[in-house]
Every structure is written in structure tokens, then in C-alpha cells.
Design a protein around this nucleic acid. Sequence first.
DNA 1: ATATATTAATAGTAATACTATTATTTTTGC
DNA 2: GCAAAAATAATAGTATTACTATTAATATAT
Lengths: 227, 227
Amino acid sequence: MDLLQNVRISINSELYLKDPESSDLGKKIVEHGILLIDRVGFEKFTFKKLGLEINSNESSIYRYFENKHKFLVYITNWYWSWKEFQLSFATHGMSDPGSKLIKAIEGITHPVVEDIRFKHINEVALNKIIINESSKSYLTKDVDNENKGGYFSVYKRLVTSIAEMIREVRPDYQYSLSLSSMILDGSLHQHFLKDHLPSITNCNETITASNYFVDLVVKILKMDTNG
Amino acid sequence: MDLLQNVRISINSELYLKDPESSDLGKKIVEHGILLIDRVGFEKFTFKKLGLEINSNESSIYRYFENKHKFLVYITNWYWSWKEFQLSFATHGMSDPGSKLIKAIEGITHPVVEDIRFKHINEVALNKIIINESSKSYLTKDVDNENKGGYFSVYKRLVTSIAEMIREVRPDYQYSLSLSSMILDGSLHQHFLKDHLPSITNCNETITASNYFVDLVVKILKMDTNG
DNA sequence: ATATATTAATAGTAATACTATTATTTTTGC
DNA sequence: GCAAAAATAATAGTATTACTATTAATATAT
């Protein structure tokens, strides 16, 4: 029996009216919602178009999600939960803080590959959404309220975990949280630049964002690289 | 005579239909447009509301700007042109590459203060827009076209200038462009976190974003700090 | 087999993001 | 000082968006 079969990403129930994982329609909404946002962008994405896409009705989608903003927050949370899970799996049992931190940074900065365990989620499309659209989920006038409602707690927990790994390597480093949050956000930004404004990044197919960020962290924390 | 009196920020003429600097109404549109976006956020901002605000008509504003997206790109360009000007002024004549770079990074990362030379622009409000809304100007499906049209050339030039300063300090550093673009974007991000998600940043009123980024660059480039 | 829950269909609303036309006011050139 | 031109304001109209409300049809569970 494959233990991983039973992995489930659970999401703050404030973000939906009816759990999309609880029905076929719900899963279809999430699956094709991701594909549609990736295709047309968040601004042009509407529940009406999504309804057409899945041969369902706009009003049926509204029974799962209040509005498209909450849908974006929902899939963003899914993504970071999934990343968090991957990370704890990849670094589990590692005793050397240095290698553990580097492993974590590589996990965060590397391009995403599909995860067959979640059939209705296209992680590659979702990752593109995270790069192009996810900042729109918090760059709003409502951010303080939504923060209180726990909308960003998964993301914050991930930043905190990596900050902890940083402090395990270098306890006297003053800026572990800022460095950690900068790596998460900066990695998305460098991936965006590589695709759209390549003249202002050194990252490309050969020099990866991973290379850049690992080098950065090694230098800042003055880590030994045995080689 | 004050030489600075004659400073003018000139903006890519593709971004407007009629130069807003050329009339009182145009300046009023820019002035109150900035204040209104700062107040209600870019999503809720409309030309109709702006018309009401300045006792003018929606259709009159449309004679200056095609749409609100181009207005955002316009004021973003204004901001980066202004920053670029400030920076070249502040670092002018500095011969030591190290102090020059640090001066530049401080200029980029420090909170903005009002510039009396531009009466119709509230730079503090504009800076808040840059932090909260400016990424929406390039996180669109049209970014590649708009990039070809030169919409982001000022920003790219600024990234390039700072990357050059980095290479003057450390010519063998491989990632000058990525580091430079990360400082510009990351600084806005840390300012945002300080105001809205303070649990995932070390930046606050006493430890500034400037402190963090100067320390970061000094460590990455292994710069001598005489002290 | 019927009650209950779920989904689909239809209709409707206020607001958005514009365009087009006409009227009025302001500027300017002579 | 007056006519022509330019700029602005007012009005009206459109397709789309982001929903809400109601009713009808279908699936499911006991």
C-alpha cells in the first residue's frame, strides 16, 4: 500500500462555501479554474467563462466560491500547503543544518514538476499562476482583514520554517525572516523576469534561479561548501 | 536662480493620448489620480470617480489616458524616472565604487519623502502605490507587447545602472542583474510586509529595510566596511 | 418511492469600462 | 473684438462583469 496515496491538502474552510474536494463538480471547478486562469489571466477570468468550460452553470460555481478573489486565495493556499508538504518530506531526517537549508532553498526555487498524487491539479499551470497572479491575492485594500482571517497563514508558516532553518545555520544572523520571505517572493520574481524581462536577470535555462539563491544564501551565511 | 526648478520628468508618449503636463486639467488628473488610487486601491479606482473628485468629466479624462492601466504605467514610469534622477544626483561625483553602491541602495530602499520641486505629485502617496499596486502594471498577459513598446524601459535602465555599480565593486560576481532586480523588487516587498504581514519580516521602525539590504549586499560582495 | 440535497437554468441588477455625439466654454490668431 | 479652433463637459448608450434571487430539473439517500 502506498502511504502517499492518502495525502490530502486541507484548506482553511473560510475560503469556500462548500468544500470543492467533496464533489466531482467541486474538483472540476478547481481543475479547470486553474487551467483557465493560467490561459487568460486572473483579470479576464470569470465564473461565467469557467461554467462554459466545464459545461456547468455560473450560479453553480457561486455555490462553492463566493467570488474569484477567494478562489485565487484558495488555490494559492493549496500551492503553499503542497510546497510545505514536499519540503518537510525532502528535508526529513536531515541532520546537517547547512545541507538541509540548501535542500529547502532548492525545493522552493526549482521549477515545479507535476505531482501524480493529485490528479485534478495541474501543478505546472498552478505554479505559473503563483508566479503571475498570486501577489494579487494580498496586494489589496482588504489584506489586513484577510490576514486576521488566516488567509495567509500557510504562506507565513512556510516563511517561518525556512527562517528557522537559517537560524540553525547561523543563529546570530539578524534578518532570517526577511531573508526567508525575500527568497520565496524573489524566486517567483526571478522566474517571471526570466520569461518576460530577461534583460534584467541573470537567470535562464543554464544559470537557474536555484543557482542564484543558493549562492546568495551561502555567501550571506558564510556557509562552508565542501568543494 | 534655482537650477533644479527646471527639472522635468519626461514620460514615453505612448502612455498618454494628450500630455497631462501640458494643461491644468492634465496635472489635476495626475495629482488626484495618485491620491485616489492610494485611497481606494487600483481595482476600485475608476475614471468616473476621478472625474467626480476633480469636478470634471469622465470623458475628459479619457482624452488624456486610454484606460486606467496605462495611467498606472504612466505614474509608475514617473516614479522610477524620479528615483533615477535622485540617484544620479546623490551618487554624482562619488569615486569609491563601494560607497557609491551603498548610497544607491540606501536611496532605493529608504522611505520616500516629499519633493517640493514637483508640486502636483505627492511622492509619498505615489510610493505607497508603487509598493501596493505597481506589480499589477507588468503582471498581465500583455507584458511582452508592452515591454516591446518600451513601457518598462525606465525601470530596466535603473536595474541595469545598479547592476553596473555592483560589477564595479566586484567584477567577478555572476549575478549582478538578479541581485539588482531583487533589491528593487524586494525592497518594495519588505516595506509591504512591515505594514501588513509583520510576522514574516525583520524590518520595522528601528531595523529598516535599508539596514537589511545594505548588510545583505556588503556580505554578498564581501565589501570592506571601515569600522 | 419520496424527501432531500445538489445542480442547472433563467432572469435581473448595479457597476465597470468604455465609445460616440453634441453642446458649451476657453483660447488664440488676426 | 471677433471668428475659428481647440478643449472640455454633458449626455446617452453598449457590452461585460460580478454578482443575487428564484425556480426547475436531476441525482442520492433512506
